[in-house]
Each structure stands twice: as structure tokens, then as C-alpha cells.
Amino acid sequence: MLDTGLVIKVGIADMNVVTAPNTIRTSGLGSCVGVVIFDQVHKVAGLAHIMLPSSTLSKADNLNRAKYADTAIEELLQLIGKSGGKSHSLKAKMAGGAQMFQFQNGSDIMRIGPRNVEAVSLELNRFKIPLISSDVGGSSGRTIEFDPQTTMLKIRTVNQGTKEI
């Protein structure tokens, strides 16, 4: 490896924050959405691997805030703030929200990818964070890695290789 930074991995329904030169990665996004919120000036970035659009879907006793769009963004902003990110310079990028399988009986669960994308966009709007770029939809899984130094989001898909947004 050329750079000396570590790659911090984020699991499913999980989140974390890094500062340069470290990078942050999450693997195998299908209908899940990976959202990165970053402060270019202070080189801080947070990433959340979101599974579901709304915590109102939860029937669990204890809420995993990283799992739902409406709780994850808020939580992520707090984590970024603690790591030195300033709210006025925050921007966002996102990827994921694919429709992995097509079924005839299209219940709401089957549309979970697009719904996750919508929910994340709404949340970013709520906190007035501009969405700089995104790579969403389709029917392929994605692995994403964000570098707070360059603010580039590297996206790898199975058949389309790697691209940066």
C-alpha cells in the first residue's frame, strides 16, 4: 500500500468516523445505503451502512440507531462533531439502494432500496447537508471506500469495475 492510512471497516447496520490519512469502507451494499458525511476542511468523514428507511418499522425493544435512515444520520452527525467536523462545512455522498431481486408480488419490502435512498435524502435535507454526488439504484451490489483527504468515494461493483464519485 502506498499511503500509510488504515482502512476502517463498517459492518452492516453500523457506522464509524475517520480522519485523514485513514479511509473508511463498507462492503456488499445491496438494498442498503452507504452514506458518507464529510468535512473537507478538517478531513473528517463518517460513514453509515443503513438497512431500513425508518425506525418506525422497528419492532425491537432496543433500537440500533445505525440501522435506520431517520436515526443514523442524526447519530452520525454527533459522532462527526465529536471528531472535529464542523456542521457548516459538511457535505454528503451516498451509494447503494439497489433492487437486488425482482418478484411479482411487489410488496413494500421489495422496494426497500429506493425507499432507503429517499429516506436518506430527506434526512440530509432536514440537516441542510448538500448531497454532492450519488450512485444509487440498479441491481448490483457495491463496495464503497471514502478517503477524507481527497473526498473521493470509490465504488466497486461486480460487473462494472471501479469508479470514483
Binding site: I12, L29, K67, I109, S140
Partner: peptide, 19 residues
């Protein structure tokens, strides 16, 4: 496709109730 993307889909129903 990637395991995460495939299995992740099968976990949606479950994920509303449990981790």
C-alpha cells in the same frame, strides 16, 4: 453478486425485529 448485497436482502424482514 457480493454476499453482502445478496444476504443483506434476505435479512430485511428479520432486521425489523432483531440484530
Amino acid at each position: 453478486d457480493m454476499v453482502g448485497a445478496i444476504i443483506g436482502y434476505g435479512l430485511i424482514e428479520l432486521s425489523q425485529i432483531s440484530d
